[in-house]
């Protein structure tokens, strides 16, 4: 189980980095979101991957409880990455409108005089 998680996360990281190295803005954003999802898998795999009961004190014996913290981290991270994705999509849309191209390499105005 852990191996599957590790491989999936690894492949997602690789895909994300590959997409980010492309010149297209859309691929850049997709690559970025793949990276953030891969991190979620990574954190999930660190909590232990057995089926366990909900961590409710007194209702569940302590040795059968799941660790709730990684899940709380992931939930927060999902919400944050969702916000980031929405913002970066809007930004990329506006930037591609302003630059009249989808090519990231064309965004050189900031290196020259403005």
């Amino acid at each position: 189980m852990l191996l599957i998680f590790a491989l999936t996360a690894g492949v997602m990281f690789a895909c994300g980095v590959y997409l980010m190295l492309r010149r297209s803005m859309v691929r850049l954003i997709i690559g970025l979101s793949l990276l953030t999802y891969a991190v979620n898998l990574l954190i999930f795999a660190e909590g232990d991957l057995q089926r366990r009961a909900a961590p409710i004190i007194d209702a569940v014996p302590e040795d059968q409880m799941a660790d709730p913290l990684p899940q709380a981290l992931i939930l927060t991270a999902i919400v944050i990455s969702f916000g980031m994705l929405a913002f970066s999509l809007a930004l990329a849309y506006r930037a591609s409108q302003a630059a009249m191209t989808d090519n990231v390499d064309a965004l050189q105005r900031t290196d020259r005089d403005i």
Partner: peptide
């Protein structure tokens, strides 16, 4: 939303998200 801002912003956003 000036053009320079959008271009600079994209670079800033991507690297900081990484």
């Amino acid at each position: 939303g000036e053009r320079g801002q959008l271009e600079g912003g994209l670079k800033y956003v991507v690297l900081n998200v990484v």
